[in-house]
């Protein structure tokens, strides 16, 4: 599991850095363009998605008490966090 997590961790790092580079380029391009940013705020409440993530975290922690394999859920999900941050750069809308 250690080897797997290390390899996946390296791949996730590359994905994250690619996203970071994209985000940096977007930020600089938008700043230079000087185009005004819209001020509209979407009406999505995200309540149900937030509830799902809260429940999921509780279930995962509880799951550790039922199976030793679940101990590795934490490290694996930490990689999901890094991948999620990288993904956020790729799904963001840009105006530049």
């Amino acid at each position: 599991m250690y080897v797997l997590i290390t390899i996946v961790g390296l791949l996730v790092t590359l994905f994250f850095l690619a996203g970071f580079w994209r985000g940096l380029q977007n930020a600089i391009a938008e700043y230079r363009s000087g185009a005004p940013e819209p001020t509209d705020v979407p009406d999505y409440g995200y309540g149900s998605l937030a509830a799902v993530s809260v429940i999921a975290s509780a279930v995962i922690i509880a799951g550790v008490g039922f199976s030793p394999a679940m101990i590795y859920a934490g490290p694996l999900l930490a990689l999901v966090t890094a991948a999620g941050c990288g993904l956020a750069f790729f799904v963001e809308q840009t105006r530049a």
Binding site: S53, A56, V80, G84
Partner: peptide, 24 residues
């Protein structure tokens, strides 16, 4: 402005694994 809500949603959800991982 268009990203404010979902930034806090993703941040909260993606934060969870960090303390779960270190809690082990």
């Amino acid at each position: 402005s268009r990203d404010v809500g979902r930034v806090f949603l993703w941040s909260g959800a993606l934060f969870y694994p960090i303390p779960i991982c270190l809690g082990m």
